[in-house]
C-alpha cells in the first residue's frame, strides 16, 4: 500500500463519492417517507395502472407489507443499479485506465514502487471505496428509517441485505477494475467497463418483462442478487454470494496479474 497514492486516490474521488452518497440517501429518504403500511395497497393500485411489463422490467414487483420489503422492492430492484453503478465505473476507471490514458501513470511507475505495490494500492482503494459507499448509505438510510418509522425496520435483515449488495458490487467493481487495468486508453477501459455491467442490466430488465423472456436471466450476473430470496431465507442466496465472491476474486486477481506483466506505453 502506497500511502501517497492512496491519499491521491481519495482526493480525486471524494467529490463524486460524497455527492452520490447524498443522492442515494435522498432517494432512500423519499422512498421511506412514502411508506405507509395502510396504503401499500394504494401504491400497488397505482403501479397496476402502468403496463405490467414496464413495472417488472424495473424490478418493482413485490412491496410486501413491512418497511424492509418495501425498501427492498423499491430500491434494491432497480435503483441499486443506477447511482452505485455510476460511482463504481467512474472510480475504477480513474484508478488505472485514466492515469494510463493521460500519461500521469508515468510519474507513478517511475517512483520507487513495484507494479505489484501500485496495483495493490489501487485495488484496495477500489474495494474500500465501494464498501464504504454502501456502509455509509446503509447507516444513513437506517437513521432516516428510524427517525420516520421507529422500530419498523428489521435491522439485522437490512444489514444482511446490504452486505449482500456489497458482495454484488465487489463483483461488478472487479470487472470494471479489470477492464481499467488492461486498457491502453480510456476508450477500451470504458467500453468494457461500461459495456459488461450495463449489458447485464439490460438483459435483467428484459428477462423481467414476461415469462417468454425469463430464460434470459441465465445470462446476467445480477440474477445472483435476489433480495426477495434473502428475505424469504432461501439457500439460493448462499450460492449467489459464493459465485459473486468468486467472480470478484478472479477479476481482481487477473487485474493484478496482467498489470504486473503488461507493457505500459506511456
Amino acid at each position: 500500500m502506497i500511502r501517497a497514492l492512496f491519499n491521491y486516490n481519495i482526493k480525486t474521488n471524494r467529490v463524486l463519492f460524497v455527492s452520490l452518497v447524498l443522492v442515494m440517501t435522498m432517494y432512500y429518504s423519499i422512498m421511506i417517507s412514502m411508506y405507509d403500511p395502510d396504503s401499500i395497497d394504494a401504491i400497488q393500485a397505482m403501479l397496476d395502472a402502468f403496463p405490467q411489463e414496464m413495472i417488472s422490467a424495473l424490478g418493482f414487483t413485490n412491496f410486501g407489507d413491512t418497511l424492509l420489503t418495501f425498501i427492498s422492492g423499491y430500491i434494491y430492484g432497480f435503483l441499486i443499479f443506477l447511482f452505485p453503478m455510476i460511482f463504481t465505473i467512474v472510480t475504477n476507471h480513474k484508478l488505472i485506465a485514466s492515469l494510463v490514458d493521460k500519461g500521469s501513470m508515468i510519474s507513478i511507475v517511475a517512483s520507487p514502487h513495484s507494479r505489484l505495490k501500485i496495483i495493490t494500492t489501487q485495488l484496495l482503494t477500489s474495494i474500500l471505496m465501494i464498501s464504504s459507499f454502501f456502509i455509509l448509505t446503509t447507516i444513513l438510510s437506517m437513521v432516516v428509517a428510524e427517525l420516520m418509522f421507529p422500530h419498523e425496520l428489521d435491522i439485522s435483515m437490512y444489514i444482511k441485505l446490504n452486505l449482500y449488495t456489497i458482495v454484488l458490487y465487489l463483483a461488478i467493481s472487479s470487472i470494471v477494475f479489470f477492464a481499467s487495468s488492461i486498457a491502453n486508453d480510456a476508450k477500451t477501459s470504458l467500453s468494457i467497463g461500461v459495456g459488461i455491467p450495463v449489458s447485464f442490466l439490460v438483459i435483467q430488465m428484459l428477462s423481467g418483462i414476461g415469462d417468454q423472456f425469463k430464460w434470459l436471466e441465465n445470462f446476467t450476473m445480477y440474477t445472483l442478487f435476489d433480495p426477495q430470496k434473502m428475505i424469504d431465507g432461501e439457500s439460493f442466496v448462499n450460492i449467489g454470494i459464493a459465485t459473486l465472491l468468486l467472480i470478484s476474486m478472479l477479476c481482481y486477481g487477473a487485474s493484478i496479474y496482467y498489470f504486473n506483466k503488461r507493457n505500459l506505453y506511456i
Binding site: G103, S107, A110
Partner: peptide, 18 residues
C-alpha cells in the same frame, strides 16, 4: 524498477501531469 527508481530521476518525452 522499484530499487532502481530510488536513485533515478526521469524526465518523460511527453509531459503528462496531474
Amino acid at each position: 524498477s522499484d530499487i532502481i527508481h530510488k536513485n533515478l530521476g526521469y524526465l518523460p518525452g511527453e509531459i503528462a501531469f496531474f
